[in-house]
């Protein structure tokens, strides 16, 4: 259970973490400046378990993995959005940052609402309003990566061909 932090449509990677901070790859260091221009209070007040509720095309822009790493470093539990930009989508899965596509939840959650998310079932409960939502299921091979905690961990134990098996 955590508090919802809401963001607008087309949240781009420069807004998530401006290019000038990408000189480090340390998640905690990056997390200090995550959303520093669009929502500076986020990095100061986020608590582990809080969730991000984004608009459509979340994470558009550059391929910088610093963006999902900075968000993961901020200890957020997951990101819910109607849709994600494609590179951000892949990057988040690959580094083990949970993301859920659910337009209904985005419409039904406001800033500061208490939200409970069951990542394995994709069920999202807004405890403030009492509404529940079901996120779109992720493809099997994506679940395999997510269950391993990211693609690096997956490859330590498996051959890449096993993704498609």
């Amino acid at each position: 259970m955590g508090k919802a932090w809401t963001f607008g449509e087309n949240m781009n990677t420069d807004e998530i973490i401006p290019g000038r901070f990408n000189i480090t790859i340390d998640p905690l260091e990056l997390a200090k400046n995550v959303f520093c221009e669009v929502k500076p209070e986020y990095s100061k007040n986020i608590k582990p378990g809080d969730i991000i509720v984004g608009g459509q095309n979340f994470g558009c822009g550059s391929s910088r993995e610093h963006a999902p790493i900075a968000i993961k470093g901020s200890q957020t539990k997951c990101i819910i959005a109607p849709s994600f930009a494609r590179i951000f989508f892949r990057n988040a899965i690959n580094i083990g940052l949970p993301i859920l596509e659910c337009p209904e939840a985005v419409a039904g959650i406001r800033e500061g609402d208490e939200v409970d998310v069951d990542l394995s079932s994709g069920q999202i409960r807004n405890l403030t309003s009492g509404a529940t939502f079901q996120a779109r299921p992720l493809p099997d091979f994506v679940l395999k990566i997510a269950e391993a905690g990211g693609i690096v961990n997956f490859l330590k134990e498996h051959d890449i061909q096993e993704l498609m098996a």
Partner: peptide, 12 residues
């Protein structure tokens, strides 16, 4: 375009 982790996956 892809992220750095996937680049490493493709290297390997």
């Amino acid at each position: 375009g892809l992220g750095s982790t996937e680049i490493a996956v493709a290297w390997v």
